[in-house]
């Protein structure tokens, strides 16, 4: 995505708010989508330029939130909830399943740059544990046995 069109998109979103700074989170989200799932330094320059703020400010905000990635990530994002309710019914085993299948640890990306695996705090699906977010879409009642299938799907899908 070229910086110009990103700029226009951001300013479009900003128009919804009484103060354009309110568009910061949506703007960073757009920039992240435009930069392959993470926010490189130029992304902050672009967002800052579009909202009339400094890149330092934009990064300061982005680094506060877990859904913004300040380092490169894989094409797919696998996030396993390991908070209490999921952990009680075996989230750790699900996580280990993904680690085995993908051959990476939590917080790492597969060599081929396809998948980033990480744990995440309560996703708000505790009653349907274990919750795994695949590219920000929830899978409920995930058990270790489901993991190979999910990974295959991802690999096939890409």
């Amino acid at each position: 995505m070229s910086a110009r069109s990103l700029r226009d998109e951001i300013q479009e979103v900003a128009a919804q708010y009484p103060q354009s700074r309110s568009a910061m989170l949506p703007a960073l989200r757009l920039a992240q989508e435009g930069h392959g799932g993470w926010l490189p330094p130029e992304a902050f320059r672009e967002v800052g330029e579009a909202l009339g703020l400094t890149p330092a400010y934009c990064k300061s905000v982005a680094s506060f939130y877990d859904m913004f990635h300040l380092k490169p990530v894989g094409r797919h994002l696998v996030e396993v909830c390991t908070n209490v309710s999921c952990a009680l019914v075996g989230a750790q085993q699900v996580l280990e399943g993904f680690q085995r299948e993908l051959g990476v640890g939590a917080g790492e990306t597969t060599e081929d740059g396809e998948v980033t695996l990480r744990t995440i705090e309560c996703l708000g699906g505790c009653g349907w544990a274990t919750i795994v977010a695949i590219d920000e879409h929830y899978r409920t009642h995930v058990s270790p046995d489901d993991v190979p299938g999910i990974v295959q799907e991802l690999r096939r899908g890409s």
Binding site: P41, L53, P55, A56, K59, S60
Partner: peptide
Amino acid sequence: EDGQLVAENRGSQTTIATFE
């Protein structure tokens, strides 16, 4: 109002920083 010295990250990981 130079917006150059900021806080980065959250919680006990928070640090003061300049851009890159």
